[in-house]
Design a protein around this nucleic acid. Structure first.
Length: 650
DNA sequence: ATTCGGACGGCC
DNA sequence: GCCGTCCGAATT
């Protein structure tokens, strides 16, 4: 057949053993359109499939090539840089190119593509810098390095206050402006739609409308594809977005900035479950871009990158932070004791709380954070109320499946039965967290005061500065126009006791988020936490020291063999299949195996296998899991498997 | 001799 | 996944 050479195509097939390019002939009439990055349709195993052209080559090693069925459009939607990123992300997570490329390239919207592209003005970079990075040692240096076209990498710990040094959006825009001034593109990533809207508004004021695009997954196919095309075609050099925007085709990428990497929305729910922070780090590395991971708190993952000197810390330190933020105090109500007597619920709210609320109401709105019922409670000792923890890894224990006693999500049922580490008793129970009672109580205690509530489903918008008591569940706290006069963090133990691996980290992150809504201490801002003054996470909040907390968190992960200090791979599937998998895996020597354990009640039903090893052996472990998946796919082995590399939540 | 079907290998 | 082919058993 007459042809214009060969296209190497990444075909959209879900099978692990077919995760490689396939060659197709380019016919002469396709030659102009079949550019690298173009979306194509090909016949594959007798069916029509989608795909992307990765390369154009003169000839193939294969005989009898099929021609491309069609070039969907000449738009090169998968740039070489993004294709390489997709491959790296797939490899990192033992996933396939086809799975990841779906996240990177939005579905085509033909009408949008054919429409005359809108005019995108050049961003106005002459505006006054917002300057929040200037408050930090190393901040001006970072901006200068970006302006010189270099690629610094930093972990920016942002002071928890509503303005000034707490204005991280201003810092992001400063970093973006410097990057754009050096002639490179910038990608600013935020975890949710609210932050995206806020940042887009700030960018509009700073650079002018149309000089950037916002890539929101929920904006609808046309709007999403239009923003994607504007970036792809180089009409804008500044892209804002949520999780999937980490793959956005920004030409000559100079900066990726990501806000609040501890937010769980950064973890993709679709296989192979990539985390946007890892995607950003891989991309910054391979494209020679700067990386700015900014947050009020610090995750163990960022801490490990700082410890490895891969990220430079930009922070004020605890003393400087305390000088700039609200005053944080702790009220040592021992709700461990109260747990024993659910009738004593009223006493859960100590007198000191009412004092702080009363004083705060004189100056403005007051926020009360109430942990939501529905966090799956962990077990506590029936004798002394201490948390039941796994004797091996110190993670909280849950009621094991089938009510067979305490079990660890990672290590399985406790061998030999559980005994309290504090008092030695062998009986346990699940503590109860109440919410409604607390809400009613504030209404009674402050008659005539506006009491409103905000939670996941019914979330309030921004508040004015009139006195009000706002009861909010964690993560649903509305901001106040001029900052809250005070905030109360009730029942801190309920957050700390969540059975997730990152419960402590998450609690501190949420408390710092509340602190950031409160006016600085010099304006009378106060945060009162009700909880155990001896708890290290409570102490980290009082000292405003998320870095110290992350150091200890990372040390704990190291001791227990959890990410990011170790490589952890979980495999889920029916237990007979998992036993098969375990036999078939050519595991490198130092891999520690746990399980398979039942995740339900059926011993032959769904279960989980856990594999872990030290970081240097991580790529080999992930590689052998990937090889196994390929072999099982090629052999058409029965039984679906779900593989997670460094899972966020198990 | 012919047809049917299930298993298996390859997919460009 | 799905298609094609190959081989063995059943059917005429």
């Amino acid at each position: 057949m007459e042809s214009a050479g060969v296209a190497r195509v990444a075909v959209e097939v879900p099978l692990a053993n077919l995760d490689r390019p396939f060659d197709y002939l380019v016919t002469p009439d396709q030659a102009a359109d079949a550019v690298v990055g173009a979306r194509v349709r090909v016949r594959f195993a007798g069916r029509q499939r989608g795909g992307f052209i990765l390369e154009r080559v003169a000839a193939s090693e294969h005989a009898d090539l099929l021609p491309l069925h069609a070039v969907v459009s000449p738009e090169p939607v998968l740039t070489p840089a993004v294709a390489e990123l997709v491959r790296r992300v797939a490899d990192h997570y033992a996933g396939s190119f086809a799975d990841v490329v779906r996240l990177a390239v939005p579905p085509r919207h033909g009408l949008t593509e054919k429409a005359v592209p809108p005019v995108h003005p050049v961003p106005d970079l002459t505006g006054t810098p917002a300057g929040s990075l200037a408050h930090y040692p190393g901040g001006p240096g970072l901006v200068r390095a970006l302006a010189q076209g270099r690629a610094p990498r930093a972990a920016w710990t942002v002071v928890p206050r509503p303005d000034g040094a707490g204005d991280w959006m201003g810092g992001f825009l400063d970093a973006a402006a410097a990057t754009l001034a050096a002639g490179r593109g910038a990608l600013l990533l935020v975890p949710d739609a609210t932050d995206l809207a806020g940042l887009a508004e700030r960018a509009r004021l700073r650079f002018g409308a149309g000089s950037f695009v916002a890539l929101a997954a929920d904006a609808g196919p046309a709007a999403r594809y239009r923003a994607f095309l504007a970036a792809l075609r180089g009409q804008v050099q500044l892209v804002l977005g949520n999780r999937s925007a980490g793959f956005a085709p920004v030409a000559n990428l100079g900066l990726i900035a990501l806000w609040d990497d501890g937010d769980d929305s950064w973890a993709d729910a679709r296989a192979p479950y990539p985390h946007a922070r890892e995607v950003a780090a891989l991309r910054a590395h391979s494209e020679g871009a700067a990386l700015l991971l900014a947050a009020r708190s610090r995750t163990a993952e960022v801490q490990s990158l700082v410890a490895a000197d891969w990220l430079r810390p930009i922070q004020l330190g605890p003393a400087g932070t305390r000088a700039a933020a609200a005053l944080v105090r702790v009220s040592g109500a021992t709700d461990l004791a109260l747990d024993r007597d659910p009738q004593a619920r009223a006493a859960r709210v100590p007198h000191e709380v009412f004092e702080v609320v009363r004083l705060g109401l004189a100056a403005g709105p007051v926020l009360v954070q109430v942990p939501r019922a529905g966090y799956r409670p962990v077990l506590v000792c029936a004798g002394c109320g201490a948390e039941a923890r796994c004797p091996r890894c110190r993670q909280p224990l849950l009621e094991a499946a089938g009510g067979t006693g305490p079990g660890c999500r990672w290590c399985g049922p406790v061998v030999g039965g559980w005994a309290c580490a504090e008092c030695g008793r062998r009986r346990w129970r699940a503590p109860v967290v109440g919410v409604q009672r607390t809400t009613e109580e504030f209404g009674r205690a402050f008659p005539g005061v506006r009491v409103v509530s905000s939670s996941g489903e019914a979330r309030l918008g921004e508040l004015d500065d009139r006195p009000a008591i706002v009861l909010a569940t964690p993560g649903a706290e509305p901001s106040a126009r001029f900052g809250y006069a005070a905030a109360v963090l009730l029942d801190s133990a309920a957050l700390l006791r969540r059975p997730e691996l990152r419960a402590d980290e998450e609690a501190l992150r949420r408390w710092l988020a509340v602190t950031a809504l409160v006016r600085a201490a010099e304006e009378g801002g106060t945060v009162l936490l009700v909880g155990d003054p001896g708890d290290r996470t409570v102490q980290a909040l009082v000292r405003l020291d998320p870095v110290g907390h992350a150091e200890r968190e990372l040390a704990d992960r190291r001791a227990a063999g959890f990410p990011p200090a170790a490589k952890l791979v979980t495999i889920e599937g029916d237990q007979p299949v998992l036993h098969e998998v375990l036999r078939a895996l050519a595991l490198p020597e130092p891999v520690v195996v746990q399980g398979p354990f039942a995740t339900g009640t059926d011993p032959d039903g769904p279960g989980r296998l856990t594999l872990r090893c030290d970081l240097p052996h991580g790529p080999a472990l992930v590689g052998s899991v990937r090889t196994l998946l390929s072999m099982r796919s090629a052999a058409k082995a029965e039984g679906a498997l779900r593989v997670r590399v460094d899972p966020q939540v198990v």
